[in-house]
C-alpha cells in the first residue's frame, strides 16, 4: 500500500513538472516549430532538407521511405539487427528441444486441433482463414514492393506477412503454421534479410563508395544516374527488412505461444 502512495506521489510530481514544461513547447500543428523548421539563426532544418531535396536525390516520392532506407540507412540496418537479436534472444531464453523434459506437459498433443481432423468449431474459422490468408500475403507483398510510392515499406509489409502466418497458427494450430513456415525457414529468412541489407552496404564499398551509399550502384543497375540507383537499392533493402521482420514476428509468436516447445500451442 505504501508503495502505491509513494508511486502516486512520484507520478503526480513528475507529471506536474512535465506539464509545467509544456508551456515552453511550440503549439500543436505549428509548421514553424523548431522540430519542423529548425531554430531561427541556427542550422537549417534537416526535416525541411528531406522534404525539399529528397525527390531530387532519390526519385522516391514517399519521403518516409527515402529517409528510412537511404538518409538514415545505417540506423535502419541496426534497427533490423535489433529485431533479429530479439528473435535470437527469445530462441535462447525459451526454446526447449527434448519432449520428455518438458516441464509442464499441460496439453494433449494437438488432439483434434488440425483443420482436417474435423473439429467442427474450427471449420468456419479455418475456412475463412484459408480464403483470407492469400489475400493478406498478397497485400503484404504489395506494401513491401510499393513502399516508395505509397504508404508502406519493409517493416509494415514484414509485419503483415508475419501476421498472416500467426493467423494460421491461431485459427488452425501451430503445427499447421509450422508446416508452412518451419523454424528452419523463418530463422533462415531472418538471417537472409540482414544479409541482403548489409550486402547492399558492402557492395557499395566494393564498388568504391561508402557503406550504404547506394548512388554508386548505378554501375550494377545500369540506371541513368545515381538517383534511380538509390531508388532501386531502397527497394532491395526494404525487401531485406521485410524478410527479417516476417521471420522474427512469427518466431516470437511460435516460441511464446508454445513455451518454447513449438508443439501444441495455446
Amino acid at each position: 500500500m505504501i508503495t502505491k502512495v509513494l508511486a502516486t506521489f512520484a507520478v503526480v510530481i513528475t507529471g506536474a513538472l512535465l506539464l509545467y514544461g509544456v508551456s515552453d513547447f511550440p503549439a500543436f500543428g505549428d509548421p514553424h516549430s523548431p522540430a519542423n523548421a529548425g531554430v531561427e539563426g541556427g542550422a537549417p532544418s534537416i526535416s525541411n532538407y528531406y522534404i525539399t531535396k529528397s525527390y531530387e536525390d532519390t526519385k522516391v516520392p514517399n519521403l518516409v521511405t527515402s529517409v528510412l532506407a537511404d538518409y538514415r540507412g545505417y540506423d535502419t540496418m541496426f534497427e533490423t539487427v535489433v529485431i533479429f537479436a530479439a528473435g535470437m534472444a527469445i530462441f535462447a531464453i525459451l526454446r526447449v528441444f527434448s519432449d520428455e523434459d518438458d516441464i509442464e506437459p499441460n496439453e494433449t498433443h494437438s488432439e483434434g486441433n488440425t483443420f482436417t481432423d474435423g473439429d467442427h468449431s474450427r471449420i468456419i474459422v479455418g475456412t475463412t482463414v484459408r480464403l483470407v490468408v492469400p489475400v493478406i500475403q498478397l497485400f503484404a507483398l504489395y506494401v513491401v514492393a510499393h513502399g516508395h510510392h505509397s504508404p508502406g515499406g519493409g517493416f509494415q509489409g514484414g509485419v503483415i506477412l508475419g501476421a498472416s502466418f500467426i493467423i494460421i497458427a491461431l485459427a488452425m494450430d501451430l503445427d499447421a503454421a509450422l508446416a508452412r513456415f518451419s523454424e528452419k525457414s523463418y530463422f533462415r529468412l531472418a538471417s537472409v534479410g540482414i544479409l541482403i541489407y548489409a550486402g547492399f552496404g558492402v557492395l557499395c564499398q566494393v564498388l568504391g563508395s561508402d557503406f550504404l551509399d547506394y548512388g554508386i550502384l548505378q554501375k550494377i543497375f545500369l540506371t541513368d544516374g545515381p538517383e534511380m540507383a538509390r531508388s532501386h537499392s531502397m527497394l532491395g533493402v526494404e525487401v531485406g527488412v521485410a524478410f527479417t521482420v516476417t521471420g522474427i514476428m512469427f518466431a516470437i509468436y511460435a516460441n511464446l505461444s508454445s513455451r518454447g516447445t513449438l508443439k501444441s500451442a495455446l
Binding site: A35, N36, I46, S47, Y50, I51, L63, V64, V67, L68, R72, D75, T76, E79, V82, I83, A86, G87, G153, F155, Q156, G158, V159, V245, I248, M249, I252
Partner: peptide
C-alpha cells in the same frame, strides 16, 4: 515532417520485438 514518422516506424516494430 517525415522524420518523426521514420523514427517511430522503426521504434514500433522494435518495440514489439523487445
Amino acid at each position: 515532417n517525415p522524420l518523426p514518422h521514420v523514427l517511430m516506424l522503426t521504434a514500433i516494430v522494435v518495440g514489439v520485438a523487445t
